[in-house]
Write a protein that binds this DNA or RNA. Sequence first.
RNA 1: GCCCCGGUAGUGUAGUGGCCUAUCAUGAAGCCCUGUCGAGGCUUCGACUUGGGUUCGAAUCCCAGCCGGGGCGCCA
Length: 433
Amino acid sequence: MYRSHYSKEISKTEYNSTVTVSGWVEDIRNLGSIAFLILRDKKGTLQLTILKKKTPELFERLISLPRESVISVQGLCKENEKVRNGYEILPDSVDILSIAETPLPLGVVDKVEADFDTRLDNRIIDLRKPEVQAIFKIRSAVLAAAHEYLRSQHFLEVHTPKIIASSSEGGTDMFKLRYFEKEAFLAQSPQLYKQSLMATGLDRVYEIAWYFRAEEHNTRRHLNESTAVDIEMAFIQDEEDVMQILEHLVHAMWKRASECREELDILKKTVTIPTLPFIKVPYDDVVDKIQQQHSPIQWGVDLSTEDERLLGDIMKKDGIDFYFITKYPLESKPFYTMPDKEKYSRGFDLECKGVEVSSGSQRIHDVALLIERLKACGLDPKDFDAYLKAFRYGMPPHGGFGFGIERFLMELLDLNNIRECILFPRDRSRLTP
RNA sequence: GCCCCGGUAGUGUAGUGGCCUAUCAUGAAGCCCUGUCGAGGCUUCGACUUGGGUUCGAAUCCCAGCCGGGGCGCCA
C-alpha cells in the first residue's frame, strides 16, 4: 500500500501512529544532521523530518534525491507546533518510485516565474502547481453542476459526431481531413446535429461538446480547440425559454464555483453569485448606449471587441456582470436563427464583463423558411440535404445555445489568458504537448 | 487574412557598437551546518535563435529565415 493518508487528511487522530504517504519531493532542506523533506500530494504538502543519527542510511538516500522524484514513505507521525501542518513524519522506510531527471525544465516551487509559453511546453510539471490544479478542480466542479442542473431539467446527455461531411454553419473556417476516399471536416460545433435531434422526440438534449475552428486568430481569448455546454430544446414558446435555462445554468455553475473554497483561496479569488434574472438589453439599446460613448457603430453589424468592452464597462458601473443582448439584427446571425419582424431575429448573446460567453436563439423549424434563409446567406441548400431532411417529417419549434466553458472559466476566475483554462491548449502555433 | 512586438545559461533577467573573458537571481553539482519552512554560508557549472551583411570591432546596427508573443477581424 502506497498511501494511508493524503497530507491534509492527517490530524490529531493520527498523531503517534504510523502512516504511509506518497508524492513528489518538492524540496529538501538539509541542515547537516537533520533534514526536512517537503512531500507534495494531491491535497497539499507535508514535512518529513529525517535525523542522521537515528536513520543514517535513510538520511543519505533521501537527501540525495532530485526534486520532483516520487517516493512513498512509512513513518511515525508526530505532533510538532514548529511545523506548518502541526505535524511531521519521521520515516522508518522509504520506497523510491521514480527519480526525476535534473535540471527540471520548469521549477514547481522556483522563486523565478516562468513564461506562459515555457509553462505550456512543460504543462505536466506546470500542472503540479496548486494554483494551476485549482483551475481544473473548479472546472470539474462547475461542469458537475452543469450536468446536475440540466439533468434536473430533463435534458438528455448526447454525443454527436465530430467528423462531419460538409461545411456546416458557414462563418468559421474548418479543419479539413481525409476520411478514407472522401473529404471530411472537424465539427465547428454540434449545432446542426443537436437541432436534428429535436425531430426525434427527445425534446431536450445537451452535450459537453468540442468545437474545432481553423481560424488563424492569435489572441488571449481564442482557441482552435475548445469546449462548450451545448443545449437544444423543443416546444419552446420563443427564445425567452432558452434564455431562462441559460441563466439558471450559469447561476448553478457560478454557485458551485463559489463553494470551491480551497481552490478559490489558492487562487486568491472571491466569487459573487449573480442574481437572477439577468437583465436583457435589446440590440437597439446597445447601439444607443455605445453611440452615447461617441463610438461609431453601424446598425446591423455584430459588436466589435471594442464595442463589447465599452458596453461591459457601462454595465459594470451599474454593478452588472451578466447581461443578455437580445433581438439581434437578422443579418448578423447565422441562417438557422428565427427571424423576428422584418429586420430582427430571435437570437441573443450572453455577455460576462464585456466578453461573449454564450450565444443562442430560437431556430427556424419551417423547412421552406430555412431554405430561404440559407440562400439569403449565400449558402447552397444542396449542401445541407442531411440537415434539411430532419425538418421535412415533423419538426417542433425549438431553440438552444452554446456556452463556452473556457471563456466562462476565464471570466469566473479573472484569468487573462484562455489557455489557462484548458489542459493542453491548441492555438495557431501550438500542437504539442 | 491584416498589423505590431520579441528571441541572452535548465528557468527568469541585465546588457542599445569597444569597459562582455556577458550581469544578477534562480537552478544543478559538491562541501559545512540539529529545527528548516523563500533556510543560511562557501566553491563550481551553465547562455547571446540561424544565415548573410555593415564595421578596425556586433549580444547590440541592417536584411532574410526560423521560432514565439500580442492586437484586430471572426467567434465561444
